Amino acid sequence: PPDDERKKAEKAARSGNEEKAREILERLGYSEDEARELAKRLR
């Protein structure tokens, strides 16, 4: 489910793995720019 994926992205971002967070968010349908912004904010 998307919620689980989003949680994974948050966890990745918090542990400093912004790249992985961005990949997950892009898979969820965010654009590259949106995903980058979100990954930064989740950190």
Results as ranks from 00 to 15, higher is better:
8 K>H: 11
31 S>V: 00
41 R>S: 06
33 D>M: 09
43 R>H: 10
31 S>A: 05
15 S>N: 12
7 K>G: 09
2 P>M: 14
20 K>M: 13
19 E>T: 12
7 K>V: 11
26 E>H: 09
14 R>K: 12
21 A>V: 05
39 A>F: 07
37 E>P: 00
22 R>V: 13
34 E>D: 10
3 D>F: 09
28 L>Y: 03
13 A>I: 06
26 E>Y: 06
21 A>Q: 03
23 E>K: 12
36 R>W: 08
13 A>H: 03
8 K>Q: 13
8 K>D: 10
9 A>H: 04
12 A>Y: 15
2 P>A: 13
29 G>Q: 00
2 P>F: 14
37 E>G: 05
13 A>W: 09
17 N>Y: 08
13 A>G: 04
25 L>W: 08
24 I>M: 06
20 K>D: 05
13 A>V: 04
10 E>A: 14
15 S>D: 13
22 R>G: 01
18 E>V: 14
26 E>T: 11
2 P>E: 14
6 R>A: 08
33 D>V: 08
3 D>E: 12
28 L>E: 01
33 D>Q: 12
12 A>M: 12
23 E>M: 11
28 L>K: 01
29 G>E: 01
26 E>A: 08
10 E>W: 14
37 E>D: 08
5 E>G: 08
43 R>I: 07
39 A>K: 00
35 A>V: 03
5 E>F: 10
5 E>K: 06
29 G>W: 01
5 E>W: 15
27 R>A: 12
24 I>Q: 02
12 A>I: 07
43 R>F: 15
42 L>K: 02
27 R>Y: 06
13 A>T: 04
11 K>M: 15
28 L>F: 04
13 A>R: 02
17 N>E: 08
15 S>L: 11
8 K>N: 11
11 K>G: 06
26 E>F: 06
39 A>Q: 01
15 S>H: 09
34 E>A: 09
4 D>R: 11
24 I>E: 02
34 E>L: 05
27 R>T: 06
41 R>G: 02
11 K>S: 11
29 G>T: 00
24 I>D: 01
5 E>Q: 10
25 L>A: 00
2 P>D: 13
34 E>Y: 07
26 E>I: 15
30 Y>Q: 00
43 R>Y: 15
4 D>Q: 12
19 E>W: 11
10 E>M: 14
12 A>G: 04
21 A>F: 08
22 R>W: 04
32 E>H: 11
14 R>H: 07
34 E>S: 05
2 P>N: 13
39 A>H: 02
5 E>L: 15
17 N>T: 03
43 R>N: 06
34 E>Q: 09
18 E>A: 07
36 R>G: 02
24 I>R: 02
43 R>L: 10
38 L>N: 00
18 E>Q: 07
23 E>P: 02
38 L>Y: 08
40 K>F: 09
16 G>P: 02
8 K>A: 13
19 E>M: 13
4 D>H: 10
27 R>G: 10
27 R>I: 05
21 A>E: 02
19 E>K: 13
1 P>G: 14
42 L>A: 04
33 D>N: 09
30 Y>M: 08
19 E>N: 09
17 N>G: 04
4 D>V: 12
23 E>Q: 13
16 G>K: 05
40 K>G: 06
1 P>H: 14
20 K>P: 03
35 A>Q: 02
5 E>Y: 09
11 K>R: 15
33 D>F: 09
37 E>L: 13
24 I>P: 00
18 E>P: 05
38 L>R: 01
34 E>I: 06
40 K>Y: 11
25 L>P: 00
39 A>L: 14
5 E>I: 07
13 A>Q: 03
37 E>C: 15
24 I>K: 02
20 K>E: 12
10 E>T: 09
22 R>K: 06
1 P>R: 13
12 A>L: 15
9 A>L: 05
15 S>A: 14
29 G>Y: 00
10 E>F: 13
24 I>S: 01
8 K>E: 14
18 E>F: 14
4 D>W: 12
22 R>L: 06
29 G>M: 01
25 L>Y: 10
37 E>I: 13
39 A>E: 01
15 S>M: 14
35 A>M: 03
31 S>Q: 04
40 K>V: 06
40 K>S: 11
19 E>C: 14
24 I>L: 07
42 L>D: 01
8 K>P: 04
23 E>G: 06
36 R>C: 03
9 A>F: 05
22 R>I: 13
21 A>I: 08
36 R>V: 05
32 E>W: 06
43 R>M: 12
42 L>I: 07
2 P>W: 14
3 D>Q: 10
5 E>P: 09
31 S>T: 12
6 R>N: 04
41 R>Q: 09
24 I>V: 02
14 R>A: 09
6 R>I: 15
26 E>R: 15
7 K>F: 10
6 R>M: 15
1 P>F: 13
16 G>T: 02
10 E>P: 04
16 G>D: 05
35 A>C: 04
16 G>H: 05
11 K>F: 11
41 R>P: 00
2 P>L: 13
6 R>F: 15
42 L>C: 07
29 G>P: 00
3 D>Y: 11
19 E>Q: 12
4 D>G: 08
10 E>I: 15
12 A>R: 04
22 R>N: 02
15 S>T: 09
25 L>Q: 01
34 E>P: 01
23 E>L: 13
17 N>L: 08
3 D>H: 10
2 P>T: 11
38 L>I: 12
35 A>R: 01
20 K>L: 15
37 E>R: 14
37 E>A: 14
16 G>E: 03
35 A>N: 01
20 K>R: 10
3 D>T: 11
16 G>R: 04
3 D>A: 10
15 S>G: 10
20 K>N: 04
37 E>M: 13
15 S>V: 07
30 Y>W: 05
24 I>Y: 06
37 E>S: 12
12 A>E: 11
25 L>M: 02
27 R>K: 13
41 R>N: 06
41 R>K: 11
15 S>W: 09
12 A>D: 03
22 R>Y: 05
31 S>N: 08
28 L>V: 02
20 K>I: 10
11 K>P: 02
